[in-house]
Simulated scan of single mutants.
Amino acid sequence: MDELPDDIFEQIEVLSEDGNVALDTGKPDEAIGYWRKALGLLPEPQSKWDAAMWLYASLGDAYRAKNDHENALSAFQSANASGDGAMNAFVQFGLGVSLYDLDRKDEATNPLLRAYMMEGRDIFKEEPFGYLKHLADQKLID
């Protein structure tokens, strides 16, 4: 896979960290602004870059913090289609949780199970019990 030019990568790293700080301090809208700006720096097609995957996943996380499940789902779908998103436990978890929160529980099962298979119960530790219970109710985990 191609690598981003150093100057672009460094700018994206700074914006990404600024977004992380904003989200950690309860400012999801500010975080979203930083991450959207960082995405704008990626050469087309954006989806080929691993940075797109983690930027979209970060956006999804920020939208979840705002209880904006539709935009969270859209961001996690973009993360899933970018870089190695289909093999990233956090992306799969975000995709599954977003679907679940939109009451699309049947569609949520596969990405939640993929996240569980990659990371085990640890990835669910800061979330309400419902997501793991959903997998258990489907008799997919103990």
Rank of each mutant, 00 (worst) to 15 (best):
R114I: 06
G83H: 01
Q77V: 12
E70Y: 09
D103L: 12
D106Y: 10
F129W: 15
E126M: 08
A52H: 10
H69T: 09
D61Q: 12
D24L: 11
E70R: 15
E10K: 14
R36A: 09
L4N: 10
D101A: 10
D122K: 11
E17N: 15
A81K: 04
V21G: 12
E3M: 12
F93L: 03
D29T: 05
G33N: 10
N20F: 07
A79P: 01
I32R: 05
G26N: 00
D103N: 14
A57N: 11
G96E: 00
D18L: 12
S47W: 07
R64T: 09
Y34Q: 13
E127N: 09
E10C: 07
A65H: 14
Q46W: 03
F129N: 15
K66A: 01
P128C: 06
N110P: 12
A31E: 00
M118S: 08
E127V: 06
A65R: 14
N20K: 07
G19Y: 03
F93D: 01
P111E: 02
N110L: 10
P45I: 01
G26I: 01
F93V: 00
Y100Q: 14
D106E: 15
G96P: 01
E127T: 07
K125G: 06
I12V: 10
V21Y: 11
L99W: 11
N80S: 11
A38L: 08
L102A: 02
L112F: 13
N71I: 09
Y100P: 14
G96N: 04
D7K: 13
W54A: 05
M53F: 06
A79D: 05
I12P: 15
L102V: 04
L132N: 04
G83S: 05
G33C: 09
V21Q: 15
M117E: 15
D7S: 12
S82M: 00
V97T: 02
G40S: 05
R104W: 09
G83R: 03
R114A: 08
K37I: 06
S16G: 14
A65E: 09
E13R: 15
I141A: 14
L99C: 09
W49E: 07
L59H: 03
K27W: 06
D103H: 15
K105I: 05
V14H: 10
F90G: 00
G33Q: 03
E127Y: 08
L55V: 04
R36L: 12
F76H: 02
F9I: 02
D61F: 11
D103I: 11
S74A: 13
P28H: 04
Q138W: 10
F9V: 00
V91G: 04
A86K: 03
R36M: 10
I8T: 04
D106M: 13
L140V: 06
E127I: 05
G83D: 00
R36Y: 10
D142G: 14
L73H: 09
L99H: 12
F76Q: 03
A38Y: 07
L15T: 01
E126C: 08
E70C: 10
A79H: 00
V97S: 00
L42K: 09
R114Q: 14
Y100K: 13
F90H: 02
L140S: 08
L42D: 04
L15P: 03
V21H: 15
